[in-house]
Amino acid sequence: MTPTSFLYRHGDVLIAPVAALPTGAVPRPGLVLAHGEHTGHSHRIRETGTASLYVYGKDLYLLISAPTATLVHEEHRAIELPVGVYRVWQQREYTPSAIRTVID
Rank of each mutant, 00 (worst) to 15 (best):
F6C: 13
L7Q: 14
L7W: 12
R9T: 12
R9F: 11
R9M: 15
H10T: 04
H10G: 00
G11K: 05
G11R: 03
V13Q: 02
V13P: 00
V13M: 00
L14A: 11
L14I: 13
I15Y: 00
I15L: 01
A20V: 07
L21C: 06
P22M: 04
P22A: 05
G24K: 07
A25P: 05
V26D: 15
R28S: 15
P29C: 10
G30P: 07
G30N: 11
V32A: 07
L33F: 02
L33K: 00
A34C: 12
A34D: 03
G36K: 04
H38E: 15
T39G: 09
T39D: 11
T39P: 06
G40H: 00
G40R: 05
G40Y: 08
H41G: 12
H41P: 06
H41F: 12
S42T: 12
S42P: 10
H43K: 06
H43C: 05
R44I: 04
R46I: 15
E47W: 07
T48Y: 11
G49H: 10
G49M: 07
T50P: 04
T50M: 07
A51S: 09
S52H: 12
S52Q: 13
S52E: 15
L53Y: 03
L53K: 02
V55W: 13
V55P: 06
V55K: 13
Y56H: 10
G57P: 09
K58L: 14
K58I: 15
L60M: 06
Y61M: 01
Y61V: 04
Y61N: 02
L62K: 00
L62D: 01
L63W: 09
L63Q: 15
S65L: 15
A66I: 10
A66Y: 10
P67I: 02
P67F: 02
P67D: 08
P67Q: 09
T68C: 07
A69C: 03
L71T: 01
V72G: 05
H73R: 01
